[in-house]
Simulated scan of single mutants.
Amino acid sequence: MQFPDFMMAQSVLPLLDIAGIAIFAVSGALAAARRQMTIVTFTFFAAVTGTGGGTLRDLLIGAPVFWIHDNRALAVCLLAALAVWVTPQRIWPVKALEWFDGLGLAAYAVFGSWKALIYGVPPLGAAAMGIITACMGGIIRDVLAGEPSILLRPELYVTAAALSAGLFVVLTMMGAPLLPAAAIAVSAGFVLRALAIVRGIALPGYRD
């Protein structure tokens, strides 16, 4: 799929991928820090959290799995793990993991949708790929850490990813320039997730 500003976006939007990987990798390392694990476990948590969602996305859309062909992905995860490892835990805010996760969620939702569109996935499917890209890393992290999945918490999470992914797809389908569309979508998703973290905003649950 081609867009009027495709060449510029092709050089800039992948930065969202690196940003999403780095931020999710930090959240994975922070989960390992809470368990006072070894540096090897820090690195493993960072890598699977940073690359998990993108790996599933690439497998589903028929793209080459990104971290196998690009050293930057695992290098970023390694650096994120080392950065957390050498930093005293007391300097990290209590909700640091949630904030890093929220940033990665918004960035990765947009990049995942963009990559799906590039590979010819229809708009609704592309938005779904953005949500999967954004959410799977956190799910894998929580399973490995033995924590209740972030999906089971009442505050908005998948909804924030859906807002970023859906808004980006809608804006691009309406002909909006890709980079402003990405900035708006990332900002909207992160603000919604931030409100959920700070104020505990949640959708109504099922009632029998």
Rank of each mutant, 00 (worst) to 15 (best):
Q2Y: 01
F6R: 15
F6Q: 14
M7D: 15
M7L: 14
M8Y: 13
M8P: 03
Q10A: 09
P14K: 03
L15H: 10
L16Q: 05
G20I: 09
G20N: 04
A25P: 02
R35T: 15
R35H: 15
Q36P: 11
I39L: 15
T41C: 07
A46V: 09
V48E: 12
V48N: 13
V48F: 14
D58T: 12
I61S: 01
V65T: 11
F66Q: 02
W67G: 08
I68D: 06
D70P: 09
A73H: 08
A75R: 00
C77T: 05
L79W: 10
A80E: 04
L82N: 05
L82F: 07
V84A: 08
V86S: 10
T87W: 01
I91T: 06
I91Q: 15
V94S: 14
V94D: 15
E98N: 14
D101K: 02
D101H: 05
L105H: 04
G112K: 00
K115N: 01
A116C: 08
G120C: 08
P122H: 07
A128W: 02
I131T: 03
T133S: 07
T133W: 12
M136Q: 04
G137A: 07
I139M: 02
R141N: 15
D142H: 07
L144R: 01
P148M: 05
R153K: 13
V158R: 06
A160N: 04
A161M: 05
G166R: 04
L167S: 13
V169E: 12
V170H: 13
L171Y: 01
L178Q: 12
A183M: 11
A194Q: 10
I197L: 04
R199P: 05
G200S: 01
G205C: 09
G205V: 07
D208L: 12
